[in-house]
Simulated assay, not measured.
Amino acid sequence: MTGPREPKTCASCGRQIAWRRAWGRDWEQVRYCSQSCRTRRATGVDRALERAILDLLAARPRGATICPSEAARAVGGADEASWRPFMEPARAAARRLVAGGHVEILQGGQVLDPSTARGPIWVRRVPRG
């Protein structure tokens, strides 16, 4: 049995997957944090939300932020009943983009670990330099 490994990011929800001893031999194949995420997986809507986040950020000055609800509105539509179901998928899309090194998640103006974010968050492009 091998020792602890670097954490991974769930391919579905974007949360951090911590190494578990039970996964010791299969750690290289672990892609999902739970059975629920394994069943759900990322869909076309999830990819559309990722693209919406990146497009919204590209249209703003470097350092500007967006709320995940803006991406939810861009994909789901303007009326609240249609975009509201896309809020958690938009947050998951932002977490996946953090794992890819494209964006940062902020809360109270501070960059934070996306797996621990609770409440309102903001998304911005990763500063270059």
Score class of each variant (00 low, 15 high):
M1S: 15
M1T: 15
T2V: 15
G3D: 14
P4L: 08
E6G: 02
E6Q: 14
P7N: 13
C10N: 07
G14A: 10
R15L: 13
R15C: 10
R15H: 10
I17C: 01
R21N: 12
R21W: 11
A22K: 15
W23M: 09
W27V: 04
W27I: 04
E28R: 11
Q29N: 13
Q29P: 00
Y32S: 04
Y32L: 03
C33Q: 00
S34T: 10
Q35P: 09
S36N: 08
S36W: 08
S36L: 09
R38K: 13
R41E: 09
R41N: 00
A42Q: 06
A42I: 00
V45H: 00
R47Q: 13
L49F: 03
E50G: 08
E50V: 01
E50A: 07
A52E: 03
L54W: 01
D55E: 12
L57F: 06
A58R: 14
A59N: 13
P61W: 02
R62E: 06
T65V: 13
I66P: 04
C67Q: 12
C67H: 07
P68K: 02
E70C: 02
E70L: 08
A71K: 02
A72F: 08
R73D: 01
R73M: 10
R73L: 04
R73W: 01
A74C: 01
A74F: 02
V75E: 02
V75L: 00
G76A: 10
D79I: 10
D79A: 13
D79Y: 13
A81D: 12
R84V: 13
P85L: 02
F86P: 01
F86W: 11
M87W: 13
M87S: 13
R91C: 15
A93V: 11
R95E: 07
R95T: 06
R96K: 05
L97V: 09
G100C: 09
G100F: 05
G101N: 03
G101F: 05
H102S: 13
V103Y: 10
V103R: 10
I105H: 05
G109P: 07
G109A: 07
L112R: 12
D113H: 07
S115Y: 04
T116Q: 14
T116A: 13
G119H: 09
V123S: 08
R124D: 02
V126Q: 08
G129T: 08
